[in-house]
Computed example of a mutant assay.
Amino acid sequence: MKKAAGFALIKTIPIFLGYIFLGIAFGLLLQKAGFGVLWAFLISLLVYAGSMQFALAGILTGGLGYLTTAVMTLLINSRHAFYGLTFIDRFKEMKGAGPYMVFSLTDETYSLLCSVARPRGFTDRQWKLAFLFISLFNQCYWVAGSVIGAVMGQMIAFDTTGIEFAMTALFTVICVNQWLAAKTHLPAGAGFLCGFLFLALIRSSGFILPALMATVALLLIFKHTIEKKMEDPS
């Protein structure tokens, strides 16, 4: 267990650096909306949805109904349904920890779980524990950042204009790192192409779901080509 935890701790350091500051940004926004430290802690613990939490800060003060909030949450986080397809078998093997792994599959955690390589000498149990610790540590970072931000918002007056850009900045860094580490850029190219195409057609945040569906379709069509590139990138 210590070996798996140590491995996860090292691998999640970049996420720690991002989540602490993103969490602080969320905590500050929530505090500005009139909600205190307890709200920041509970939302990050029980909702834990990144961009949805930033939207939730406005929803809580906007008087939206439960149904509207539920539909918005589903649409904003619909991309996670595609993330989960990658790890269905893996999470089933984790048995009792499986439901938590599904709950904790954020964009950054998904990216890390996809790219992390199994160390030599790790047993199956240690590898499963490493997956669990990666997810758990990432959520702890987010919760800690949110609480710190809420506390800071109570003690110090902040101008929070533009602070929500921290989420975009983290996504950009992850994208660049994945691009540099990838053996083939076909999947990323498909994602960029579909994203720009549907953004031009729909011209609203609703472009994300159809863009993801089109990207998955392209990846399935060109599956064998991508697998060959992964085996021999030359």
Rank of each mutant, 00 (worst) to 15 (best):
M1D: 13
M1Y: 14
L9P: 04
I15W: 07
G18L: 04
A25C: 05
F26V: 03
G34P: 03
G34S: 05
F35W: 08
G36V: 03
V37W: 03
W39M: 06
A40D: 01
L42T: 09
V47S: 09
V47E: 10
Y48L: 07
A55W: 13
L56P: 04
G58E: 14
L60F: 12
T61H: 09
T61D: 09
G62V: 14
G63R: 10
G65N: 11
I76Y: 09
N77Q: 06
N77I: 00
R79S: 05
R79T: 09
G84N: 05
L85V: 10
T86Q: 08
T86K: 05
D89K: 14
D89C: 02
K92R: 11
K92L: 05
K92H: 07
V102K: 02
E108S: 06
E108I: 02
Y110V: 00
S115T: 14
V116W: 00
G121K: 08
D124H: 12
L129K: 06
A130P: 07
I134Y: 02
S135L: 04
L136T: 15
F137I: 13
F137L: 15
N138S: 15
N138D: 14
Q139I: 04
S146P: 03
V151Q: 04
M155E: 09
M155K: 11
A157G: 00
F158I: 06
D159F: 13
T161D: 12
G162L: 05
G162S: 12
I163Q: 06
E164K: 07
A169V: 03
I174S: 04
V176R: 13
W179E: 01
W179Q: 00
K183F: 08
G191V: 07
F192R: 00
C194H: 11
G195N: 12
L197K: 01
F198P: 00
L199D: 05
L201M: 10
I202P: 02
S204Q: 06
G206M: 07
L209E: 01
A211V: 07
M213G: 07
L218F: 14
K223Y: 15
K228F: 05
M230G: 00
D232F: 10
